[in-house]
Write a protein that binds this DNA or RNA. Structure first.
Length: 455
DNA sequence: AACCTCATAAACAAGA
DNA sequence: TTCTTGTTTATGAGGT
């Protein structure tokens, strides 16, 4: 790739005025696999995408010398530098001072295939986020308009004004839209209009199946979650009602291993689930049953009688014994990974995951001021890199620490049957969107729906 | 096609 | 009696 190509792409991205325009942009379906294997164009020129330049559509292409004279560097601040760490996607190299950062930037992130591909991916991230922002703005406008109309229009049919009416607002609005997609109780933040598909392999519609389909994340299984994995996504999963792409067994194990004494009571495991995952703050009866079921079923979970009752511990040996899963999935997707794995796909996967997920409006909202996207992307990147290592090593890697597809799979969203008692989708948007990161950890989440409405 | 893993549902028992 | 905890079985989806 050459700088002009990037410039052109960047201009197209930033000059798009509406979501529709962006969506109709051919580049929204860029094939990263081709992007990343483009002919090498070694250059000493480093290319800096300045996020602040997005307002005027400028793409800065600097030579190292020019770069050293840029404004940011004079002020010793740089969008790609903070807290002594290089913030280039996937880098995080520690740079003790600004000068060493500059040196690092010029050495490690020069204009080469890798950097340009990363730029391209970042562009797509930005593009998708802007697209989503436009959609959310539109929705907000519609909601406000709707509320205004509602509040001013004469009440022809007097109905009890309760939570239901407000809760169902977005639902009715959604239903009114011909483009609306079916809702499921667990997809409360479904956009009123479908997310326009960019390069994502996952279609939005596929995420909105009315049927109570239990989706499986083929390679999330037998995954030993590292603390780092979870920590990086922690804020995301704490706030977004997104099913974590890990098995119950992995999550239980993680819960137990995170405890100081490496042992937890059942109730403490429950609390960990609800504390760490917004997703598990609902349908408690279901997942709690699953937790108990898993504890009993898997040999790797050992029940130990304690002074304070029974606690559960993990038998690591047994856990490791479990059969590893092989990489699988859409062949073309895999091909994409394989051709672009080291620096393209992880971010793209993160993008896909975040964009494909039903909770994307929430996600975008929640991510304001939170580095959740970055964290997610980083986690995905790490996972995917691990996955590629896994694949390349002929799957002989017995380390269960990483699951190949775990990184590229969309964030797992359970689709549940429409249960009249659980029909809380729209409300969940509210509760979750308003959910504070400082979640009350000790609160015990009971089976009762967040919202006891609804008809 | 057979087998496996996993999620989910549900029945049941024991104990607080 | 009710709830929690724990065990077990069954079923279906999806992958190998």
């Amino acid at each position: 790739m050459i700088p002009t190509e990037l410039q052109q792409l960047w201009k197209e991205v930033t000059s798009s005025h509406t979501a529709e325009e962006i969506a109709s942009n051919n580049h929204s379906s860029l094939d990263l696999s081709t992007t990343c294997v483009s002919s090498s164009a070694p250059s000493k020129t480093s290319l800096i995408i300045n996020p602040h330049a997005s307002t005027n559509g400028q793409l800065s292409v600097h030579t190292p010398k020019r770069e050293s004279l840029s404004h940011e560097e004079h002020s010793h601040s740089h969008p790609l530098y903070g807290h002594g760490v290089c913030k280039w996607p996937g880098c995080e190299a520690v740079c003790e001072d600004f000068q060493s950062f500059l040196k690092h930037l010029n050495n490690e992130h020069a204009l080469d295939d890798r950097s340009t591909a990363q730029c391209r991916v970042q562009m797509q991230v930005v593009q998708q986020l802007e697209l989503q922002l436009a959609k959310d703005k539109e929705r907000l406008q519609a909601m406000m308009t709707h509320l205004h109309v509602k509040s001013t229009e004469p009440k022809a049919t007097p109905q009890p004004l309760n939570l239901v009416s407000s809760v169902t607002l977005s639902k009715t609005a959604s239903e009114a839209s011909p483009q609306s997609l079916p809702h499921t109780p667990t997809t409360p933040t479904t956009p009123i209009t479908p997310v326009i598909q960019g390069p994502s392999v996952i279609t939005t519609t596929s995420m909105h199946n009315v049927e109570p389909i239990r989706r499986r994340c083929p390679n999330k299984y037998n995954v030993a979650i590292s603390s780092a994995d979870l920590a990086q996504n922690q804020e995301f999963y704490k706030n977004a009602e997104v099913r974590p792409p890990f098995t119950y067994a992995s999550l239980i194990r993680q819960a137990i291993l995170e405890s100081p004494e490496k042992q937890l009571t059942l109730n403490e495991i429950y609390n960990w689930f609800t504390r760490m995952f917004a997703y598990f703050r609902r349908n408690a009866a279901t997942w709690k049953n699953a937790v108990r079921h898993n504890l009993s079923l898997h040999k790797c979970f050992v029940r130990v009688e304690n002074v304070k009752g029974a606690v559960w511990t993990v038998d690591e040996l047994e856990f490791q014994k479990r059969r590893p899963q092989k990489i699988s999935g859409n062949p073309s997707l895999i091909k994409n990974i394989q051709t672009s794995h080291t620096y393209c796909t992880p971010l793209n996967a993160a993008l896909q995951a975040s964009m494909a997920d039903n909770s994307i409006p929430l996600y975008t909202t929640a991510s304001m001021g939170n580095p959740t996207l970055g964290n997610l992307a980083n986690a995905m990147r790490e996972d995917l890199n691990g996955a590629m290592e896994h694949t390349n090593s002929n799957e002989s890697d017995s380390s269960p620490g990483r699951s190949p597809m775990q990184a590229m799979h969309p964030v797992h969203v359970k689709e549940e049957p429409l249960d009249p008692d659980e029909n809380e989708g729209p409300l969940s948007l509210v509760t979750t969107a308003n959910h504070s990161p400082d979640f009350d950890h000790d609160r015990d989440y009971e089976d009762e729906p967040v919202n006891e409405d609804i008809e």
